[in-house]
């Protein structure tokens, strides 16, 4: 596989909360056009690691480099301004605005009014949000809110997309559709996806990084990881 250049690199990244080492000395690399899944049991540190990448947390030690820019400790909006699209674990949407307005705000950040309007329409088309375009997002169902948030990510036309549990709480069909969407987004952007749902990961991913107790336990294909005794031990809690 041709890998191209490294677009995200974490070096010795650590995040401590008091005495707890949520992320401990993690080295991580993401290549151009790659779609990487981060998995691991609850408390493995994947969401904390994710938040260090997006600027929501300032790492205690170590560095994050996104396309030659050192971003550890930078503000979220500075990281987003590099062309990074982020979807957080808890849906972060503008509840009091319509779905269309939500997406428009994302598109208008990068484009003049006219282009923003067409881009908003295109994004609504692409995510099939036409039926709910003028509904207030606060009144939408959970899965629809997730898609509106994805729509905002997509409308900003990012080259790097970071998604934290994009399929959480979705029905089976919704999950399948989200998987399709993610593969479509991956055509134009490198991606990191934090996920719990193993079936979902099988649908989208080639390369998987397994977190355990704040460290990376292994990095391999989903098949290799699911047949590995160490991985099984981590998930089922057996001791060797």
């Amino acid at each position: 596989m041709k890998r191209g250049e490294v677009v995200v690199e974490a070096r010795g990244l650590s995040m401590h909360f008091g005495g707890v080492r949520a992320v401990d000395q993690v080295d991580f690399s993401l290549w151009e056009n790659e779609l990487r899944c981060l998995i691991g049991p609850n408390g493995a540190g994947k969401s904390t690691f994710f938040k260090c990448l997006t600027g929501q947390l300032t790492p205690t030690m170590g560095d994050v480099v996104i396309r030659d820019v050192h971003v550890a400790g930078r503000e979220s909006h500075e990281i987003a301004a590099l062309g990074v699209g982020v979807k957080t674990q808890v849906p972060n949407v503008f509840d009091g605005l319509s779905a269309e307005e939500n997406i428009w705000i994302a598109a208008r950040r990068w484009h003049a009014a006219k282009r923003a309007k067409t881009l908003t329409a295109e994004t609504i088309e692409r995510l099939q949000l036409g039926d709910i375009r003028s509904d207030l997002v606060g009144a939408l169902a959970h899965g629809q809110r997730q898609w509106v948030e994805l729509g905002m990510v997509v409308a900003a036309e990012p080259w790097l997309v970071l998604l934290d549990e994009p399929a959480a709480g979705m029905t089976h069909e919704e999950t399948a559709r989200t998987a399709e969407l993610i593969q479509e987004i991956n055509q134009t952007a490198a991606m990191i996806v934090v996920e719990h749902d193993m079936q979902f990961i099988r649908m989208i991913s080639r390369q998987v990084t397994l977190f355990h107790e704040g460290r990376i336990l292994m990095e391999d294909t989903m098949d290799a990881i699911s047949s590995d005794p160490r991985a099984r031990e981590v998930y089922l809690g057996h001791r060797a």
Partner: peptide
Amino acid sequence: THFGRVCIAIRENETRAELLAYDT
């Protein structure tokens, strides 16, 4: 205006506005 709508968006969800690269 764009400015006004971003202000409203920040009222609704400041984190999201930041993640869309707005300096809130």
